[in-house]
Computed example of a mutant assay.
Amino acid sequence: MLDDIDRRILRHFQSEPSLTMAELAERCRIGQGVCWRRIEKMQAAGVIEGQEAVIDWAALGYAVEVSLRVTLDKTQARAFDDFTAAAREVAEVIEIQTFLGRVDVRLSVLARDMGHYQQVYRDRILTLPHIADIEALMHIARVKRDEVLPI
């Protein structure tokens, strides 16, 4: 599906998404029009989903990050759908992942401090539907965060 030029574009685009089209084309040793058309083609194919800003939540005063591993009551037919729909409404939940296995869902929760986390946990998380078990893992340090793949 991808040829060497597409891979070259993706390598440079992943490492420096803020490059202008002209800079990206120059680094890939192709014309700007060719680069633009190939990026559009990869976007249309779903290879490139978009660009996003990476925010340092700690710099904005969010000092507490918790990963919650949730096991749902699977005797309820709509447990996954009801739970994920309700969890999406909690502003402090910044990521929801679903799994096959003992743990069904993982929520990433941000809070300003432990008091704020306690309030969110008691008032918003524990009231989510169909929770059978929940385990909190307090985030200590991010050792690696990299979504760049070797292409």
Rank of each mutant, 00 (worst) to 15 (best):
A111M: 04
W36M: 08
A79T: 00
V34R: 10
G31K: 02
G50H: 05
G101N: 02
A45Y: 07
G50P: 02
V90C: 04
Q76C: 06
E49T: 12
V105T: 06
K41F: 06
K41D: 05
L24H: 08
W57E: 03
A22Y: 14
T71H: 02
R106W: 15
C35Y: 03
L60W: 15
A87C: 03
C35S: 00
L68F: 10
L110W: 09
G101L: 01
L110I: 10
W57M: 13
A44H: 13
I55F: 10
R69H: 13
E95Q: 14
V66Y: 06
V34A: 01
E89T: 09
T20Y: 07
R102Y: 08
V109F: 06
V66N: 07
V93L: 06
E65R: 11
E92K: 04
K41R: 15
G31F: 01
V93C: 03
G61Y: 12
A79P: 02
R78K: 14
E65V: 14
M42S: 02
A63E: 12
Q43T: 13
K74G: 08
A25R: 05
V47W: 12
L24Q: 09
C28V: 00
A77S: 11
L100S: 15
A58C: 10
R78V: 06
A59R: 15
V47H: 13
V109R: 05
V109H: 09
R37I: 01
L72N: 02
A86H: 12
M42I: 06
R37E: 10
L68Y: 14
I55P: 01
R69A: 11
E95A: 14
A91T: 14
R69N: 09
L107W: 07
R88K: 15
R88Q: 13
A86D: 08
A25F: 00
V90K: 02
Q97R: 12
V105L: 10
M42L: 11
K74D: 10
M21R: 15
I48S: 03
E40L: 11
I48N: 03
Q97H: 09
D104F: 03
S67C: 13
R27W: 05
Y62I: 03
D81R: 15
I55D: 05
A85E: 13
F99Y: 05
A86F: 11
A87I: 03
S67V: 15
V109A: 03
E49H: 11
V47D: 07
A45S: 14
Q32R: 13
A77L: 10
A111R: 05
Q76K: 12
G61C: 08
A77H: 14
A63F: 14
S67W: 15
V47P: 07
L72K: 00
T84V: 08
I39Q: 02
A25M: 00
E95K: 11
E95S: 12
F99L: 06
G31N: 03
D82E: 09
L100N: 13
R37H: 11
T84K: 09
L107T: 03
G101K: 00
I39E: 08
R78C: 00
D56R: 11
A44G: 06
Q76V: 12
Q43A: 10
R38L: 01
R102P: 06
A63L: 12
L107A: 04
F99Q: 04
I39K: 07
F83C: 02
A79H: 01
E26K: 13
L107R: 06
R37T: 10
V109Y: 12
R27Y: 03
A87Q: 05
E89Y: 01
V54A: 03
I48P: 09
W57C: 08
I96L: 05
T71Q: 08
W36F: 11
E52I: 09
R106F: 13
